[in-house]
Every structure is written in C-alpha cells, then in structure tokens.
Design a protein around this nucleic acid. Structure first.
Lengths: 340, 340
DNA sequence: TTGTAGGCGTTATCAT
DNA sequence: ATGATAACGCCTACAA
C-alpha cells in the first residue's frame, strides 16, 4: 500500500499540514519538525499522489499527442523532439496513434479529455477531426501540419516551398516529363506537396500529365508499386519526385529490380530527409525537414498556451525546409525520351 | 468550465446519485428520470472527470511505457503494436523515452508513479535501472528484452538463436572470416546477439577474431563507421554480420561508397527485419523479428497482471525469430581471402 | 426507486 | 509556527 500524507504525519508526530508545507515549502517550518518530516518522507519513500493533486489543482501536468500513426521514422523523430522537451519541462506525455477515421479519433480524444492540460494534434491522413468538436474547444490545442485553425496555434512545415524547390531542381536539370508519387488523400502535407509540384511545373511552362501523378500513400510498398504504374505510361518520365522518403526508397528498390540506374536512367528525389534515406545508395536528393524541431516548436507553443491558460492569440508558424542535393540527379544521361 | 455531475443533476432535477447510476447503470432507475438524465448528459456534453474517478477507484486506466529511445523503426513498430492493443482494451498510454542513464530513468519512472496501473520497461542501452528500486516494486511491471527479473514477467526476442542462425547461414555459405558489427554496451539484445555469433563460430570450429568484433551502437552512422575499421584489418573478412538492420544499412552504404559489391565482394547480413531494410538494394539477408507482436505480448501480459492485481506468477516468454534469406549472400564469389 | 453523506489524498484557508 | 477543516468530483454504502 502506498503511504499517504497522513501516514507520514502520524509517523513524524506532526500534522498533515506541516508535512505538506515541508514538501511544497509554502510556509516556514521550524527546523526541528522540518528535519523530522524530511527524514520520515525519505524513509517511507513517500510521494504525493498525483491523482489527488490533479483533482485539487485542476491541472494534470500532462500533454496529449494525437498522431495518425507512429509507424515510420517521421513520427519517431517527431516524438523524440517532443519527449525530450516535455521531460525537461516536467510534463508527461500521453500518446495515441493509429486512428485513421473520425470515430477512432474521437475515442482517442475522449480518452485524453481531462487527463491532460493540452493537446498536440497532428493531421490524420483523412480529414479525421473537426475542430468544432466540443472537447477540442474545451482544451488548449496546437495543430501540427494542418491547415489553419482559427483560435489555436498551428505549426507546420513549408511543404509547398520544399516541393516547389525539389521540382524546380529537377526541371533545372533538364527534365520535362516528371512523375510524382503522391501522398495519401486527405493529408495536408501531401496536398501541399502536390501543389508545390504543380506550381513549379506550370510555372516553368511544363504540363502536369495526369498519367504521371500516381498514388503512393507515403509507404515503401506504395512507392514500389507506383513505379510499376509509372513504367507503363508513354512517353516515360525521365524523373520521379516522390512525396516522401519512404516512397522514394520503395521506388528506388523497384527501379533497382528493373535494372534501372539512378540517376543515369531515371532521376529520383525524396522528401523529409529521414535518417535511413540519408544512407540510401545511390545517394538520394531530398528535402531536409526539421522534424525534431517541428515537434519541439509545437510542444513549446502548447506548454506556453497551457500556462497562460487561454489568454493567448493564435499563431501560425511555417518552418523552413532545405533542399539537399546528394545525387547528381539534375544531370541525367538522357534528357528526353524520344520526343521534343 | 467543464460540467460536473452536480450540474447535470441540478439541470435534470434529480439527485447526484441518480445521474451516477444512469451513467454506470449500477442500479435500476425509473424510465422517466433515466431519459431525462440521458438527455441532459448529452446536451451538456458531460463526461465524468477521470481524475476524480481515479482517486476514488484507485486505478487510472493507464499503462506507462519506458523506452530507451523512440527514434528508430524498431521502437515505432513496437509502439504501434502496443498502442493498438491498449486502445482496444480501453487503456491509455503514457510514454517516456530517451533516458540513457539511471538518473533520467528514475525521473521518468517517478513521473509515472501513481499515474498508471502498470509499467512496460524496455531495457535501456546501459544498465539504466535496478528492479529493486522501490517504485518499481510497488507497481505491476513487465520487462521487455531484458534478462530475468524475479517476480515479474519478461517478454523477449530469441536474440541468441536468431544470431546463431544468421551466423550459421554465413558459415554454411563458406565464410570463415566473419566480422560482427556489435551493438551498444550494456544492451541485453546486443550481448545476446554477440553470444549467438560467438557460439556459432566456435561451434563450427572457427575462431572469433577480436579485430573483427567492431563497435556499432545500432545506428546507421555506427554501421557506416564500422566498415572503415573492418577494412583496415588483415586478413579481410569475407562477410559482415551486423547486430541490427540499421547498422547493416549504414554498412551497406559504406561498402557501396568503397565500390564493393554485396554479396559478390563481401557478404552482409542484418537483424530485426525492419521495414526499410526489407527494401534495401541489394536485398539484405536478415532475421525477422516480430516486433509488433513483441509489443502486443508485453502489453497483454501487463494488462492481465494489472487486472489480477498481483496474484500472478512470473512468466518468461521467448518469441521465436526467423531467418529471411533475401540475398544469395551464402554463395560469395570469393570464399577465402588468400589464406586457408 | 431515490436521496444523503462519507471518503479517496491533496492543498489552501482559517484559526490558534 | 502549527493544526483542524473544507473542498476538488466522483462513487457507493446506507437510509428512506
């Protein structure tokens, strides 16, 4: 049985309040009793019950993190940043992932309602939440990689600019027929990246061919399968821009299996600069996204919000990303595929 | 302000207990009042405060997960399994990672003490915990991938058998000089894998050369750097067995940078069968480890323990692993390196 | 069937 | 400087 404050008080021969005062040093306590209390606390290994404390102070010291999934490196990196920051600031983390639909999202949200002081919400792949849902209104929320959410903070990556840059890089390398392996429907990241792609293409006077926009759901398998579809269209593209690194790695594997050299036969770029992509061979040109930083910004904003408790203006922050040219994918051996 | 049960009672014109009874249907309630309460609850969006409930029932409905790190695919996979299971069983997850030393471990543990009903502890890379630490004694604990812990459950992977198998595979392919890229000191997984390696080698009458046991800390960078060291020893090995996939991918990249073909110039194997390793090129022979399953087993044991509340015998479970031969690394072009 | 009251372990207020 | 006590929101005997 866990010792309570009454046990300590009895054992030390003082009143409950005195023990409390020693622990929170909120009032002066005579050196004699203080020592006695401290000794007893140490001996019994007493720790105040966080539940009771929460009930009284009406704050838990926890923050919830709602993720669409936790199963790839992006989220690992993201969580690492968050975890470290939370720990340093004395907050604990309540994490829930793998909810792809609205019902699951609501359940996860509800299970956090009342257990945390604030919530970090990362956009699910389908429009899985609705910021007008009452529990969301009641809590301090920071959104990550979503569109705007009036009244709350949003922290996001410059997906548009990043994908514009990587597409531009391919175009500058002489590519005209460029395929894009898309992300999942309903993902804000994915749609912004696609927008960056299309803007860069049309801005350069190139046409976005529908048959070169292939689905790819951000997974290795999706990237692998996408190459199959891309290889069936004519004329073939000379470059592929994958919506994220995982897709790119899957595509790389597929291209390798088909005996195609990257970038000699076909160029390939990634996005996110996730650790294992940094060691791909051949080296992959990608876009560096400060994922850990994203997490840190998000949670630091949230904690700020929680401490100010509502008296806070909404904020939108776009973190810059950076093109990382690792391969000479901008100088392909073949620039066009028989036309032009 | 969040509505309390009193608000609901007042609004519905009944007593507090009636509301409580409707919510938990613990006693029969007249249809009339029942309906009125249900309507009021729905209208006000009332949810019982989990903190108050925890205080009273002396259980939180949460389980804590203590990980050494969350930053690679192994942990992502592991967490995915846990998260899904916890969600389905109505438990929430309190996660804390990135504690490499004892002090940090203790802090993380303390921050969970009283907030969860049970704890999942995955071995840190250094001997970061001590199962006699009082808070650990007070809680229901399940250990993952550690040595034995009297009085508690342990769920682990058959690291020894797996690494024995992969080493044996290389030996059967004719290799005699085999290097191993080790894991971090103090990791139970790492030491068991090394033991599997050495047992397989000596069992086949081969010597374990000290200069072919190189450090590698389970990271991409470590694997990359390990190759540098391996390439300086003479005679060169004809095969490298990496302690995990991340090391193997790093090594693969290093070998590629040196213009060495895998497996023609040198064979290479991984361990864990993490998603991105499954798409390595050339394909990597590795050992499939049921990581998600590991998580599910661990948490299901824990929840069982929590529900029985102590009246439980300790259990040790070893999950089998499986050699996955993806490359023809067992038939290298060169079997020896000038001696023999 | 329904309402009243006590207590879970704290902290804060008010006397002393 | 110290001790008794109310309150946080809920559930559950017990009483009616």
């Amino acid at each position: 049985m866990r010792p309570t404050i009454r046990d300590v008080a009895r054992e030390a021969g003082v009143s409950i309040s005195t023990v409390s005062r020693v622990l929170n040093d909120t009032c002066p306590v005579s050196g004699d009793k203080r020592r006695r209390v401290e000794e007893t606390v140490a001996r019994m290994g007493y720790t105040p019950d966080p539940t009771a404390r929460s009930l009284l102070k009406r704050e838990t010291g926890g923050v919830g993190v709602l993720l669409p999934s936790v199963s790839d490196e992006f989220f690992s990196e993201f969580l690492t940043g968050i975890d470290r920051y939370a720990q340093q600031n004395g907050y604990y983390l309540l994490i829930s992932a793998s909810h792809r639909n609205r019902a699951e999202f609501d359940r996860a949200l509800l299970s956090m309602y009342g257990r945390v002081d604030g919530l970090l919400v990362m956009a699910p792949n389908e429009g899985g939440y609705d910021s007008s849902y009452p529990p969301l209104q009641q809590m301090q929320v920071v959104y990550v990689n979503t569109g705007d959410h009036p009244g709350t903070d949003v922290v996001r990556i410059d997906n548009f600019g990043g994908f514009f840059a990587v597409t531009h890089h391919l175009i500058a390398g002489g590519h005209r027929d460029i395929a894009m392996i898309l992300g999942p429907d309903g993902s804000f990241d994915a749609s912004e990246r696609q927008r960056g792609f299309e803007t860069a293409m049309t801005g350069a006077g190139l046409t976005v061919r529908d048959d070169l926009l292939v689905t790819g759901d951000f997974t290795l398998e999706g990237g692998y399968a996408a190459v199959d579809r891309i290889m069936r269209v004519r004329p073939l593209p000379t470059a592929i821009a994958a919506a994220n690194d995982l897709s790119a790695l899957g595509a790389l594997s597929a291209l390798h299996d088909r005996g195609l050299q990257v970038p000699e036969s076909i160029a390939l770029t990634g996005f996110d600069d996730v650790p294992s992509a940094r060691f791909a061979n051949p080296p992959l040109t990608t876009v560096h996204v400060p994922i850990r930083e994203l997490g840190v910004r998000a949670i630091s904003r949230l904690i700020q919000r929680v401490k100010n408790d509502g008296g806070q203006k909404e904020t939108i922050e776009n973190l810059p990303v950076e093109l990382v040219v690792r391969a000479s994918s901008s100088q392909p051996a073949v620039k066009t595929n028989g036309r032009d």
